[in-house]
Design a protein around this nucleic acid. Structure first.
Lengths: 146, 146
DNA sequence: TCTTGACCTAAAGTTAGGTTTAGGTTGTAC
DNA sequence: GTACAACCTAAACCTAACTTTAGGTCAAGA
């Protein structure tokens, strides 16, 4: 059993954020002491791990709550939950591809400014950067503009 | 030269978004017709490509404006701009690592629900999923929990 | 001439995901 | 018995990045 302060430190999340998640219904099974103090058990900790994961993959709080609702409903929702994770996997892979394109653009810009800094000016480079691009950078450039 | 409507279609961005970017000072060189209508030239188009790239890597509008200001100031800011792209490259690589961890967690969950769906219940699986995990999934699981 | 479509502005509104504030309770150490 | 830390709630506030609204200009075609 963990207090909200302990969980806050474990996950490096502010206490009000944990309360906010609770208010939004993300901890279905959260117990309380008679005085009203929250008690996080291993299930809540695992839930929080899943919450963090789904948030990082771009899911909204209300979608995460829906998932938590499904969990609470038991085995009848197993297929739905499975589908959700398969879709999320697809979504993450899409994000990775997009991020790779962004990185390609940034790699090109790094080369561009490296060269411009060496020359002390970007005037000449601006004119025919395409001709002067090394092959590795050309590929980044082309990928980034597609 | 392109109208705001053409640019909107080219980049699949709403017209008010382009106006908003302009108001925020993201197009330093944007020309206007005497009547006030915006004319996007190749420079503005290239600027928009950079804006999209920097936004995708998580940069804020005001940081992007600062970069555009540097561009307008000429060669004296080349080092700053180079530094910015190097830092952004680092940031994107960090994001990719994080996304990989998220994917690992989701891969584990896909396996979990695959197995649970086959059995029609997650009761048994919940008890000793660690013992039953295939080696490939175990690695995802461990990575995701680090 | 009148209507239509594409553009303009300023200002108000929206949304998600928190964060802050104000005021109150509880349990333990001195 | 009082001070202190750690918890609680409800409600107001905040921020970024748009989006919508309301009202207006302008050029071309019927």
């Amino acid at each position: 059993m963990y207090s909200i302060g302990q969980v806050s430190k474990m996950f490096d999340l502010p206490i009000p954020t944990l309360r906010y998640y609770d208010k939004e219904g993300l901890f279905r099974d959260l117990e309380r002491e008679p005085s009203g103090i929250r008690k996080f058990n291993d299930q809540s900790i695992e839930a929080l791990r899943v919450i963090e994961c789904l948030k990082k993959s771009g899911m909204q709080i209300k979608e995460i709550r829906e998932f938590m609702d499904w969990c609470a409903q038991g085995d009848s929702t197993l297929e739905k939950r499975k589908e959700m994770f398969y879709q999320q996997r697809k979504e993450i892979k899409r994000q990775m591809e997009e991020l790779q394109k962004t990185l390609d653009m940034v790699e090109y810009k790094c080369w561009y400014y490296d060269t411009a800094c060496e020359e002390g000016s970007e005037k000449d480079l601006k004119k025919d950067f395409e001709k002067r691009m090394p092959e590795a950078i050309r590929q980044c450039f082309e990928n980034a503009h597609r």
